[in-house]
């Protein structure tokens, strides 16, 4: 099913798409997009890689990747960030924002600015967790379809 054209294109594009997906996830609190969108872009990069490789290689590689565990971890992380709010405030309270916490906890400056990555509190964490969940979920869906297609062809 794979051809030289797909393989060559993938060689150049895959790294770009994956980086772009990661960018959308991490910059979710500054630019349009976020965990879900970035995760979907990331998964589409992985889909390209899956399509470009032979079925046996894919099966070998993904045997070791705990996709469903990653999904659970993403969801639990999201829930965990939301539960942080129970420390004195309410569920989903952004407790890290402007608190001086070294990662994403810097105070947000007022007024027009280029956007500072190290702000946002729990939002970037939630984006990263949602991104993990979405990329694991979508990749496993694609993988199931791809491997089913293989089975159909062999019959």
């Amino acid at each position: 099913m794979t051809t030289v054209i797909i393989k060559t294109t993938t060689k150049y594009l895959a790294a770009l798409i994956l980086t772009f997906g990661a960018y959308i996830i991490v910059h979710g609190h500054l630019t349009p997009g976020g965990g879900f969108q970035g995760g979907a872009v990331f998964a589409s990069g992985l889909a390209l890689l899956i399509v470009a490789c032979e079925g046996d290689v894919i099966r070998e590689r993904f045997k070791k990747v705990p996709l469903s565990a990653l999904e659970s971890v993403g969801a639990l992380g999201f829930l965990g960030m939301a539960t942080l709010g129970f420390m004195g405030y309410t569920f989903f309270r952004n407790v890290i924002a402007n608190s001086g916490f070294p990662l994403f906890g810097e105070p947000t400056p007022l007024g027009i600015n280029p956007g500072y990555l190290n702000t946002g509190g729990t939002l970037p964490y939630m984006n990263i967790f949602v991104g993990t969940k979405v990329l694991a979920g979508l990749t496993s869906i694609i993988l199931v379809f791809y491997l089913l297609l293989e089975v159909r062809e062999n019959e």
Partner: peptide, 22 residues
């Protein structure tokens, strides 16, 4: 006073941890 949120949080926690018992 957190009861309404816990009503969602607890089963959601259960739903996300259950798939780990593969």
């Amino acid at each position: 006073e957190h009861l309404p949120a816990l009503m969602i949080a607890v089963p959601l926690f259960g739903a996300f941890t259950t798939p780990l018992f593969k």
